[in-house]
Design a binder for these strands. Structure first.
Length: 772
DNA sequence: TTGTTACTATTTTTT
DNA sequence: ATAGTAACAA
């Protein structure tokens, strides 16, 4: 991913650190240790400084992963620790895989022996399973995904007679998630915050939710960390055990750690104190899900005697790209500060383009890509990075019509698909009948006549006797409580589960899985479905079974599904990559397109509203991440019109555009498909955005009388162009290409607020309308 | 109990 | 514009 091309000129220009003797030792080490070949001084230092706390500030494209893996290789090959004595934590499975591969290439067989290389969550599961009893769980506890936990919360909200409309389960979910990220158990939730849901019942709901999880022998994502922390805090002996086990600790993407993870790391690091955190405060983009940039900013205080090593030599991008990114990020105040530099050439400038709307943006980028394609540019080396996933659609539409192959990264994940979840629910229940949430999911899928009414009865019975739904079902089919029809089909279902369970030990698991899907009627359900997606769903199910074959048994497979699985079907071939800026972190491409740089979208309005300046800075870091993904070319664009929630708006260009240094950016004109019309309008626009000053962007409320006599309130973001630049007058009737006829409500600079006869009120640039 | 229709609220990023 | 939900009819 972030491999710097192995440069033949081994010793780098990086300012040397340490005493002369240290430097001399390092130099000798470089010739003695072949794996240090090609590392620059700072990188070498980061690899060799194995003892004590170390913070490696690794800027974008500075060979972070390489340092991390080489460091592990170094520790292993020097016999400083055995593979199972190194704790290496990452955030994503992708990163874990990457690291495993790299270490494998370096050391060979050692990878098998690195059981403690994984994501925070995966390691959490591992530790929790070992000591489940201490956490009040059975070691076969299930891990709830978002779906399950949401369903559970919904049940609780209903049970409390709280209005679902006013207090949506989603909100409770994110609230509890936030608490868990901060390491707060129900009793520790500050009272003030507890009131932020359902008039003060938030805290109780949280407690009830946790209680219910225990009853179900289940944990959710947040618990994996929270419970692990509790385990260690309540059992100091156990913690000591792990202290002596983990000789070296490595943490990737430290800037993304949340408080719970931070607490955990501090607990674990109390052992040897050999903790090495790698991160980049300029790439902290997960604040919204609880990540604390502060963790990395505070590192030196938290770990006294910590050594900070900066990696600033960039091996990825050209000079222009690096300069633009650096300049953008200097607008942030809260940063440790790094100066990236490169020895490579300036390369090509970034390009900037203004387009009419998202469709034209997609058309334009599509054309650019086709042009690149004829120049033999690999599609795999092209990426479109968007702020929000809804932007992807325009590109997908366009690429489909062009016949341009693409892949969406980080879209709906494989295991999140309906059919995969359903299938897994069947497998789950077969393995563990007391998994109520999964049982509930499939009890009436496919339709068996076991809907709300029957489920209600089951719930009551289960609650009353405090048994699982499945057990309740078993008891109820023996009684007269259910009507004959549902009773019959319920019995049939239970019998099938009995059969399947009988075969778990004897039958090969893939065969059993197939049988479950067939016998249950699930396969048939999709075969009979004539919707266009039904076929892909069936194929996905086949893929699931195929993937399952790579595991030893059903249980082993299911463990992976909840945490690890992200097999992507169309990852092969030469394709353009489409993804969000978030998903792009850690990746690199020759050419990167950055569409949609508009106020409100990027920076996103919500970040601005909810997080204020901190939010803005995080958005800016997102922009920094985006630009630094590019190795050779970066193309930024923005549109003048975009639909938001179904209606059209005319956003201003993103303030980030004006934070780019003009000397590194080329302003491109759109190839004019419409004769001179486009370019003349464009001139107008480019003047407008380069002069706009955003430091105190006014948002003015305008109140005007519409012709119909009603008061219309609209929010007009005024541009700073001085004086009216148009000759239009309020009340004038005009025509607009897209919106049709309308009359002018107000004029702000060259922006018109118009009441359209058919499409409502819009703000439009004067150059887009004509008199009528 | 199921399927339909109408309405409503919801639109960022996700381990 | 869309999805998800609630109310209603068959």
């Amino acid at each position: 991913m972030t491999t710097p091309k192995a440069k033949s000129s081994a010793p780098q220009e990086t300012p040397a650190t340490g005493s002369l003797s240290e430097r001399a030792q390092r130099r000798t080490a470089q010739t003695a240790l072949p794996y240090l070949q090609g590392l620059n001084e700072a990188q070498t230092e980061a690899v060799l400084t194995t003892e004590g706390p170390v913070l490696v500030l690794a800027g974008a494209g500075t060979g972070k992963t390489r340092v991390l893996t080489t460091r592990i290789g170094h520790i292993l090959s020097h016999g400083k620790a055995r593979p199972n004595e190194i704790l290496a934590v990452t955030f994503t499975n992708k990163a874990t895989r990457e690291m495993k591969n790299r270490i494998g290439q370096m050391i060979g067989e050692a990878v098998e022996g690195m059981p403690w290389l994984g994501t925070f969550h995966a390691i959490g599961v591992k530790i929790l399973r070992r000591h489940a009893e201490l956490a009040g769980l059975k070691s076969n506890f299930t891990i709830l995904d978002m779906d399950d936990s949401l369903r559970l919360m919904k049940q609780l909200i209903k049970a409390e007679n709280i209005d679902e409309k006013r207090w949506p389960p989603r909100r409770l979910s994110s609230l509890i998630d936030g608490w868990k990220n901060r390491g707060l158990t129900p009793d520790k939730v500050p009272n003030g915050e507890a009131f932020s849901f359902a008039d003060g019942r938030g805290k109780d709901l949280y407690a009830a939710y946790q209680k219910r999880l225990k009853e179900l022998n289940a944990v959710d994502f947040g618990d994996l960390l929270l419970e692990m922390n509790r385990l260690f805090l309540e059992n100091p002996d156990l913690l000591k055990q792990y202290h002596s086990r983990f000789k070296y600790i490595l943490v990737d993407e430290y800037q993304d750690t949340n408080i719970a993870q931070y607490i955990w790391l501090r607990l674990i690091a109390q052992g040897t104190g050999n903790i090495c955190c790698v991160g980049d405060d300029d790439q902290a983009i997960y604040g919204w899900r609880g990540a604390e940039v502060d963790n990395i900013l505070r590192f030196e205080k938290d770990f006294p005697g910590a050594k900070t090593i900066r990696l600033e030599r960039n091996y990825r991008s050209t000079g222009h790209i690096l300069a633009a990114a650096s300049s953008l990020i200097t607008h942030n105040q809260e940063r440790l500060g790094k100066t990236l530099h490169t020895d490579d050439g300036l390369g090509e400038k970034l390009t900037l383009k203004c387009l009419w709307d998202d469709a034209e943006e997609a058309r334009n980028i599509g054309d650019e890509i086709e042009a690149l394609q004829t120049k033999k540019h690999a599609l795999n080396e092209i990426a479109i990075l968007v702020r929000a996933s809804f932007q992807m659609r325009a590109f997908e539409d366009r690429f489909v019509t062009l016949g341009l192959p693409y892949r969406v990264i980080g879209g709906p994940r494989f295991y999140e698909r309906l059919e995969i979840k359903d299938a897994c629910a069947y497998f789950d229940v077969a393995l563990n009948p007391s998994n109520d949430l999964k049982f509930e999911r499939i009890i009436n899928t496919p339709k068996r006549g076991l809907a709300t009414a029957t489920l209600e009865v089951l719930h009551h019975h289960a609650r009353a006797r405090s048994i699982s739904l499945y057990e309740a079902a078993q008891e109820l089919v023996e009684t007269e409580e259910l009507r004959p029809k549902p009773r019959g089909s319920l019995r049939a279902l239970l019998n099938k589960f009995d059969e399947w369970r009988r075969d778990i030990e004897t039958m090969p698991h893939t065969e059993l899985a197939e049988r479950i899907l067939d016998d249950s009627g699930y396969t048939q359900m999709w075969q009979q479905d004539k919707s266009p997606q039904a076929q892909t769903r069936l194929e996905n199910l086949k893929e699931l079974i195929r993937y399952m074959g790579e595991f030893e048994n059903l249980a082993g497979f299911m463990e992976h599904v909840s945490l690890v699985m992200d097999a992507d079907a169309n990852s092969d071939g030469d394709r353009v990559n489409i993804m969000t800026l978030h998903a792009a972190k850690g990746l690199e491409f020759d050419t990167v397109f950055l569409p949609g740089w508009e106020e409100g979208l990027f920076p996103h309005q919500r970040s601005l509203d909810e997080e204020g300046r901190a939010g803005l800075e995080e958005e800016r870091r997102l922009g920094y991440v985006g630009i630094t993904r590019a190795k050779k070319q970066a193309h930024i664009s923005f549109t003048q019109n975009r639909r938001v929630h179904g209606n059209w708006q005319s956003p201003l260009p993103s303030r980030f555009i004006d934070e780019l240094p003009a000397s590194h950016v080329d302003i491109k004109e759109e190839e004019s498909n419409y004769g001179g019309y486009v370019s003349s309008r464009y001139d107008n626009m480019s003047m407008n955005y380069s002069k706009t000053n955003y430091t105190r962007q006014p948002t003015t409320k305008t109140q005007k009388q519409s012709p119909a006599g009603k008061t219309i309130e609209g929010t007009v973001i005024s541009s700073r162009t001085s004086g009216p630049t148009t000759s239009y007058e309020v009340g004038e009737r005009i025509f607009h290409q897209k919106f049709g006829y309308g009359s002018i409500l107000s004029i702000t600079g060259d922006k018109l607020s118009i009441a359209f006869e058919k499409s409502g009120n819009k703000n439009v640039l004067a150059s887009f309308v004509e008199r009528h």
